[in-house]
């Protein structure tokens, strides 16, 4: 298509177009680096900051100390958490174990022992506490379960280090017609058995000793030893009882304890006599002298 414009105008137009194109800057295309936009005020201030000075400020404000403290706390928490996590897979320690085992044994033998029955306040707790305190036995945590059966006349079972679990048969103390002081002294005999750790001598199953405090294999989860221990406890409580020698030592300890207290000495002698008589007279207590030998000898040992 041909232009109808005069040649001069056409030429001027072309020159103008050429000059216009020259005036356009295409820097990248020409290989030039684009100029940065001018710095704002804040950037200039930041550039002026000396970081060493900043550090000094933090130090002066004790922020570094605080940060260190927080870091230490965090590490301590981490340690505690990982210890707790580890403990999950551990067998219990000996201190934690016995209270649990005794309670488990009481649970498993609840029907036989008959400790779950409604009873009026017999006042045994108050009387026992007074006798303990009168005889200087202090800081002893006592848990006493009264039984409605003849299965266990009286017994002490292990718990935590300063806690003892006593069992006491209500039919037994009624049959023997014991006063509250005599009941308390009967329980103090058991206190010596606990103090002398006789339970641990008499319970023959020792498999638990290797396990306590060690790490459990999560795949095996071996708790067979607990069942064996419960059986062994039952055998001791219901059948075996204490030995002649153990009874002698306990009687001697009772004698030493009551030495200065005439009232309690008389009460203990009365208890020993009642026990001797009931074992002779009543067949249902024949088993008693086998578990607690021998009421007759105890009286002699105490009188000597």
């Amino acid at each position: 298509m041909r232009s109808n414009l005069p040649p001069v105008v056409n030429l001027c137009g072309r020159i103008f177009l050429f000059l216009f194109l020259l005036s356009i800057e295409i820097p990248t295309a020409l290989g030039e680096t684009p100029k940065p936009s001018p710095k704002i005020e804040e950037e200039e201030k930041l550039e002026e900051l000396k970081f060493q000075e900043l550090k000094d400020v933090i130090k002066r404000d004790k922020l570094a100390k605080e940060a260190k403290k927080l870091l230490e706390q965090r590490q301590a928490l981490k340690k505690t958490r990982s210890k707790l996590e580890m403990d999950r897979f551990f067998y219990p320690s000996e201190e934690d174990f016995w209270k649990m085992v005794t309670e488990l044994w009481l649970t498993k033998n609840a029907v036989k022992l008959k400790w779950e029955f409604e009873k009026s306040d017999l006042g045994i707790g108050m009387a026992f506490k007074k006798v303990l305190e009168d005889l200087g036995i202090r800081n002893l945590s006592v848990r006493l379960l009264v039984l409605n059966s003849y299965e266990v006349p009286h017994m002490i079972l292990p718990s935590k280090s300063e806690e003892a679990i006593f069992l006491l048969s209500l039919p037994f103390i009624r049959e023997m017609d014991l006063s509250k002081v005599e009941i308390s002294l009967l329980l103090i005999e058991d206190y010596w058995r606990w103090k002398n750790k006789l339970f641990f001598d008499q319970v023959t199953e020792k498999g638990y000793q290797k396990k306590l405090g060690t790490k459990m294999d999560p795949k095996k989860r071996d708790v067979v030893f607990v069942g064996k221990l419960l059986d062994s406890m039952s055998d001791f409580v219901f059948n075996v009882g204490y030995t002649f020698d153990q009874q002698y030592n306990v009687t001697k300890q009772m004698k030493d304890l009551l030495n200065t207290n005439k009232l309690y000495t008389k009460a203990y002698e009365a208890l020993l006599k009642k026990r001797q008589e009931i074992v002779i007279k009543q067949n249902k207590f024949n088993d008693y002298s086998r578990r607690y030998p021998s009421p007759e000898m105890q009286l002699k040992w105490f009188s000597k």
């Binding site: 067998y91 488990l104 649970t107 609840a110 400790w115 506490k129 202090r138 800081n139 708790v223």
Partner: peptide, 27 residues
């Protein structure tokens, strides 16, 4: 360990009852 003891409902019941029936004190 505790889970491995496989306690049943009657165990839990009696275990809880121990505290209701015990006479407790510290000399």
């Amino acid at each position: 360990f505790f889970q491995s003891l496989n306690l049943d409902l009657s165990d839990l019941y009696y275990w809880g009852r121990i505290y209701d029936h015990a006479i407790e004190f510290t000399s």
